[in-house]
Design a protein around this nucleic acid. Structure first.
Lengths: 236, 236
DNA sequence: CGTCTGTTTGAAGTGGGTCAACGAACGTGG
DNA sequence: CCACGTTCGTTGACCCACTTCAAACAGACG
């Protein structure tokens, strides 16, 4: 919405190559999809805005966050390709979603139509349920990560999470094959992990010097020794 | 399950008086319910156990948590009357649920039956969807609370959360009317908020001495000055 | 080439974790 | 009924990991 340029292309066509295998979609639902293209910084929706749509991020990345009056911001989640969002029990969205990668494509499903489709098509209803249940489980794991005390644990957990969620092979071909692209800034990561940027940088540096990870570029991480990260996460 | 004593009573009968207005149930679904009674410390399910049921806590309280090998425990969520749980996208539960109040009653819905009912009954499907969406929103707020830096913010947020979720008027009649019952120990609260028990106690004490709250009993909180708590939460 | 924004390192201060101990509540058995 | 043990709750003292403040560095872009 907003000033996003609409594209009438059938989403399945261009979405197919982006989709992680773990996130199955359903053709009946995809027929309702309208895909829009967003620039970096554009808002997909605002808090309290009437929740008229469900969404699925097709390509690019976005952040779900709060907007405090004092300018302080808290990132609730990162949205990566395949992720559904905008699920909402009440009439208005609780957070805002802001695109962080230029050219991000997001599919929109009119809530009323989608709900009606779910009523008549159990397969769609099951897909939505499963997706929601998966979100619940992921959010619960996330509370555990946030609950971890040391910076090393949080950062390690984050890197592993990004490696798992990262859609491999969709980046520019000149990359090291095993590098994970971090579409968000260090500030965003620090916010997401509830720690100071400086602490995040220092932790990343220490992981780099000990050989666990490497940075071909500031936003490309290679996991060199996954065991180090897993150890840090599991340690407590 | 386990050694829980089964009660064949129709759950709607005894559940009615416990239900918060915000959590509507659906008669068609409730016909599937089997209510069991649990003692304190009993497990409702374990991690990796086959997810054969959906659950709803009818009365009492429970905690959803991880069980680390080193005995370290992390509480993901508290389950209070009206809460659904056991929603699971994969085949096995991710966490374990442990009862913390003697005599807790929990309704169980066979997953296969409930899913089939949802397929044929859009009203049930919508209820489950709405419940799941509400869980998502609540968990996202929870990540914000955990992300807060100072102990005061976390504790204030917790007290407000409990006051909101608390089912008023279901406790013993001798209580101060506005007191909120905390069914869990200080250790559990500290774990839930990812902080040391000592810090929790100190924070509660400082809130008490400044008149924001009062403790008729260690597990009864009266919120004397809600503004103080809301201020602490909103401050950052 | 200058001005951004984003990233990294350095130095200093502190909030809360940790260790230790005591008090309170509660049940159990003598 | 009291003595006792156990678990839960609270307070004190110390210290470290992280936050904060400050500044240098790197890349992007007009």
């Amino acid at each position: 919405m907003d000033t996003a340029s609409l594209e009438s292309t059938h989403p399945l066509v261009e979405a197919a190559s982006w989709e992680p295998a773990s996130e199955p979609t359903c053709e009946a639902l995809e027929r309702l999809a309208i895909v829009s293209r967003y620039d970096s910084g554009q808002l997909v929706y605002r808090p309290n805005e009437t929740a008229e749509n469900w969404f699925r991020l097709v390509s690019g990345a976005a952040r779900k966050c709060t907007l405090s009056s004092d300018g302080h911001r808290h990132i609730v989640d990162f949205l990566l390709p395949g992720d559904f969002f905008g699920f909402c029990a009440s009439s208005g969205y609780a957070f805002c979603v802001e695109v962080i990668v230029p050219g991000t494509c997001i599919a929109r499903y009119t809530r009323g139509h989608a709900e009606k489709l779910a009523d008549s098509n159990p397969q769609v209803a099951r897909l939505v349920r499963r997706t929601a249940f998966a979100s619940i489980t992921r959010l619960q794991w996330r509370t555990l990560v946030l609950g971890r005390r040391s910076a090393l644990e949080k950062v390690s957990a984050f890197l592993l999470e990004m490696a798992d969620r990262s859609w491999a092979g969709t980046q520019s071909p000149s990359w090291p094959g095993d590098a994970v692209y971090l579409p968000m800034s260090r500030y965003d990561i620090a916010d997401y992990l509830a720690m100071a940027v400086e602490t995040l940088c220092r932790t990343l540096t220490s992981l780099r010097v000990c050989g666990a990870i490497a940075f071909p570029h500031a936003r490309q991480v290679q996991i060199r020794d996954r065991a180090v990260l897993e150890n840090a996460v599991a340690s407590k």
